[in-house]
Computed example of a mutant assay.
Amino acid sequence: MRRTVMVFSVAWIALGAMAPAQAAVHSIDELPYVNVVGCNDKEHWAAQRVICSPEARHSKLWDKLVQEDGYVFGQYRDLLQNTALNSPEQQRIVVSQGEYLRRRDACGKDLLCMLRVEEARDKELMALRAKLRKDLPEDEIAAWSKGWVIPGSGGKPQALGQRVMAGFALYPLPHVTLADGSTLFWGFQQGEGSVQSLAMTNGKGQLQVLGMADDLLLSSKEKTSTPQLRLFVQDPKALERYLPALRAWAAADSLGFNQECPGKDAQRCTAAMQSPLPIRAFLLRHEAGKKRENNALQSPVPLPKVQDSVSPGLFWQ
């Protein structure tokens, strides 16, 4: 099947020339070639000006050109999310995207040439996505959650694993790879966006933090319920390392994701980070000498004080 990367309207992508050396950024939205704009943008590349012209719109190739362009740029953004921010690997992807755009420009007014360049880049990015693909550690999630329960509806116990996996119904799962190679996956329950789950893995793909969010999505705008984010760890030290990213995700979630910060949404992001985030953590491990219980909320863990070093602008869906 055709991949479900990103859906683009007939708006086109405005692209800026890439600097010889890419400066460090705080969000993939600061990287070149990721800004979506209309055909009236002043920064069009030569190929864009041709494709956006009235003559091209009447060509039988126009629909296919627009479609392939959407695939290419959707995959490009997805690859940026799959690689560590500011890493050499990510920068190589940015450089290769600039090279692709210049190849397309070199086609002049030849629409068939442009289409061939787009299709070749599409295949190239598909192969790279397959190589860099990261999967949710479902086996580890099952092992972590086995035997544990949480209070469910009506006070009846609900299996922790059942609740967590219900919140990963979205496919493909949104995820972001951080500078240290760790990856944060998240999703939501089918038909119920306010029921979400998340998982944080280290650079080796091993599960470090499991989480459940309820009524957190858009909670900064809609005060209709009590939001909460419950985190589960087997080693409390994981919170010291991963809490900055988890706090930033919670802030992004409360805003509805897709925030440009740094950028036009910087003030909103700052306010969300500074507001009290409804985060609690629990130890998902039976301690020696204590009565064995299966309530996953029986062992709360204090949250460490951490610096907010991750931007909510990282998290898009």
Rank of each mutant, 00 (worst) to 15 (best):
K131M: 06
R133F: 10
L178C: 10
E138L: 15
R163L: 05
G155E: 00
S96Y: 04
L125G: 06
I141Y: 09
A166T: 11
G167I: 03
Q158E: 13
I141G: 06
C107T: 05
A166G: 09
S145Y: 06
P157C: 04
Y171P: 02
V149W: 04
L170I: 12
L160G: 02
P151F: 01
K146Q: 15
K156M: 08
L125C: 04
M114N: 03
S145R: 06
M126H: 13
Y100P: 01
E119I: 08
H175D: 02
W148F: 09
D135I: 07
S96A: 13
L101I: 12
V117L: 04
L132G: 06
G147N: 11
S145T: 15
S145M: 02
L112W: 04
L128M: 12
P137R: 10
K146V: 01
G167K: 01
D105L: 01
R121G: 01
L115R: 12
L132K: 14
R129F: 01
A169W: 09
D105S: 12
R133H: 15
L170F: 15
D139P: 00
L115M: 05
Q97I: 00
S145H: 05
L170Y: 14
P172E: 08
H175S: 11
R116W: 00
G161R: 10
C113V: 02
K131I: 00
R116E: 06
M165G: 07
A127T: 13
D122P: 02
M165Q: 13
R116F: 06
R129A: 04
L170E: 14
C107K: 00
E119A: 06
C107E: 04
T177A: 09
A127P: 07
P174M: 08
L136M: 09
R103I: 02
R103C: 00
P151E: 02
R104C: 09
R103T: 08
S96V: 04
V149T: 15
H175R: 13
K134R: 15
S96K: 13
W144P: 05
F168D: 05
M126S: 14
A143I: 10
W148H: 01
Q97F: 04
A166P: 03
Y171C: 09
H175Q: 12
Q158D: 07
C107G: 03
R103N: 12
A179E: 15
